[in-house]
Amino acid sequence: MSTEASAQTARPSFLSAILRNPLAGVFIALLAIFVISCLISPYFLTSYNMSVIARGLAFVGIMTIAQSALMILGELDLSLGTIGGLSGVISGMLMVQAGVDPWISIVLALVLGLLLGLLNGFLVTALGLHSLVLTIGMAGVYGGAILVLTKGVAITGIPASIHFLGRGDAFGVPVPFIVMVVVLLIALFLTLKTPMGRYMYAIGNNAAAARMLGIRVNRIRLMIFALAGMLSALAGVLMVARLGTAQPSIGQAWVLAPIAAAVIGGVATTGGVGSPLGGIFGAAIIAIIENIIVLFGVSPYWQGVVSGVIVVLAISFDALSRRYIRRDSH
């Protein structure tokens, strides 16, 4: 009898421990959207469709990890999409027009992304500019550079040897998705298990206080801007491999979606709060909504309304569950 009683008391505390996790709300919202999608569409839970969603999620997911890291720091980079596009286009030009080995071209594109991110970080730290304002301008510069280089025309003839990076599967799992998971694991390790991660949250919460504690705020900012630039380039290169062409339009859809995904996933735009994993949950919610809208044959004129309503519902659900959890824990 006493064992039973202790089990009964232990069970709610275990559940509330899980629910108290800040990611619980967004995860439950994701789970709910997944289950509802399974119920309303017979096509949703097929292996092909899962692979379609996973492949689509991978690119926005990588961008979301990059943007989440910056947002934890209290920064935003609106030029990440165009960094991805420009790096992708330049990798394509190197491979096709300059005859550079595809793998070397990819490495050079990643280095370019890193340097462009570093440049953004340098301008933010050295000039003391607000990252949001500065990167709106830089997005124009990088986006303009794409048009100057391509004249708006896609670069075709990307070597087939790298197509598997975007189109391929390993054990039925799309390669870009595997890349995203690896990036996520590294990002989680960096943010949760290293001093740098702690410094990022400290800077995001209060940069002045962090500086007084001896944290090299500008150095961390530069590093995160550079890494975010490199991740954007990675997404751009993977997209080039997926399409088999270097499209000038690559990255255009990666401006607001990663920020929305991060916010849905509980990453605060004010800094110091959230995790890249939450961002990925948010990105997964968006990816499923985009998929189910097509499966369900929603009129294109209603798609914006429908996806907007679902996102608002998901955020509301997250907020309500947090309130419930707080009340429960008191």
Partner: peptide, 25 residues
Amino acid sequence: IVYSAPQTADVVQQVQIVESAISTR
């Protein structure tokens, strides 16, 4: 007839729509 249009003239979005559409056989 199911009419499914990308919100912007973006090939990435169009590919995503076609691939999702294939799922519905």
